[in-house]
Design a binder for these strands. Structure first.
Length: 257
DNA sequence: ATGGTTGCAGGGCAA
């Protein structure tokens, strides 16, 4: 089973990129973030023609998450809100595929350490952490993936000194991510030897991609039952090289199931 | 400290 996460920064603009990547990479499950589409405009038919079922939770202009899959999601167990956390922003989506629970997250960016958005990010992460804990008690095989807007440690940052305690890299954010993982989620990327300086996001500005100035903030986390069966994990930067790309590249994990 | 680039939407806002 091949599972991927991709922040597409508008599925309206990036639908051709998604279709081309799916045709090439053949993921079984693809979690999307920043679809920026209301549900009425979600391209269900175009994706169905490409062989993918869709579940999605969108809003106008901002945010929006979706999960594409070869096999349909179970009819029950689709969750689009963090339990007990009132939030109009469409950032979470959970669905069950066979015996695998998939939780797609578009973590709050946070803008700047100390800002209102930063406080919202930490509160949001605390609420998600409680929810994920409950999901892991209910399911043995859990995948939590998405745009985490947190670089787990300095290996995931092109210039750790410049980013020291900055947004996406601050200690409270990293501690919050560690707490989310504490019930037994592994960053699948780190289960394997990796090329150093692997990133999944590069700012559109300042020629960051050409200059290899990126961060690895897109993650596929897996519970132990799945981590034990993980056979590969990597980032595919090819889509970032294309015309009119998303600023993120897909993060992928493969499992022998 | 600011600016740079993209998307949405048609002016800023979010990233």
């Amino acid at each position: 089973m091949k599972v991927a996460s991709w922040n597409v920064n508008s599925l309206n603009v990036r639908l051709p990129h998604v279709l081309a990547w799916c045709a090439d990479a053949q993921p079984d499950i693809l979690a999307l973030q920043e679809t920026k589409l209301v549900d009425e405009k979600f391209p269900v038919e175009a994706l169905a023609e490409a062989g993918y079922h869709s579940v999605y939770s969108g809003q106008p202009t901002y945010n929006g998450v979706a999960i594409l899959s070869r096999e349909p999601a179970s009819a029950d167990g689709i969750i689009m809100d963090i339990p007990g956390f009132d939030d109009p922003q469409r950032r979470v989506l959970a669905a069950t595929y066979g015996d695998v629970r998939v939780i797609d997250l578009y973590v709050v960016n946070g803008k700047e350490v100390g800002s209102d958005k930063y406080e919202y990010k930490l509160a949001w992460l605390a609420a998600v952490t409680e929810w994920v804990r409950a999901e892991m008690q209910a399911h043995e095989k859990v995948i939590v993936l998405g745009d985490f807007n947190i670089a787990p440690d300095d290996r995931d940052v092109h210039d750790p000194e410049a980013w020291h305690e900055q947004i996406l890299c601050s200690t409270p954010e990293r501690d919050a991510l560690a707490k989310l993982c504490a019930p037994g989620l592994a960053d699948t990327f780190r289960l394997f030897e990796q090329e150093e300086r692997t990133w999944s996001w590069w700012d559109y500005r300042m020629n960051a991609f050409r200059r290899k100035m990126g961060l690895r903030i897109d993650l596929v986390l897996a519970s132990k039952a799945l981590a034990d069966r993980c056979t590969a994990a990597y980032v595919d930067i090819e889509p970032r090289r294309q015309e009119r790309p998303s600023d993120h590249a897909p993060a992928i994990a493969e499992f022998s199931l």
